[in-house]
Amino acid sequence: MEQLFTISGTTLIIRLPAELDHHSSEKIRLEADRLATGRNIRWMLFDFGQTVFMDSSGIGMLIGRYKMMRFLGGNVAAIRANEQIQRVLTLSGIDKVIDVYEGIPQQLNL
């Protein structure tokens, strides 16, 4: 099975599935929270590279993780979102609080 969660230093990279809905968001939420609270994670990177569908359940999951990471003194970013995903991010307004990068941000030195 492909690795969905990768930890590199203090960064947790989450490779999102092809379809991010209520069904798939639930599992990601549980695992992301477990990993982020159990270790010293400063950045949570959501990799949309393989994602072709997202609805408001995905947005809810992102907002929840954003709140948690801010509480822990860390941050959240989204990377490699295609046009469709970008539309949903923009429509929800979440792109105003979560940075969206084309690739892995350089300041993370990964």
Binding site: S56, S57, G60, M61, S92
Partner: peptide, 14 residues
Amino acid sequence: ECDRAGMGFAFMEA
């Protein structure tokens, strides 16, 4: 508390 964004109907409308 279940991480619902409250955007379901807004998305349907949009």
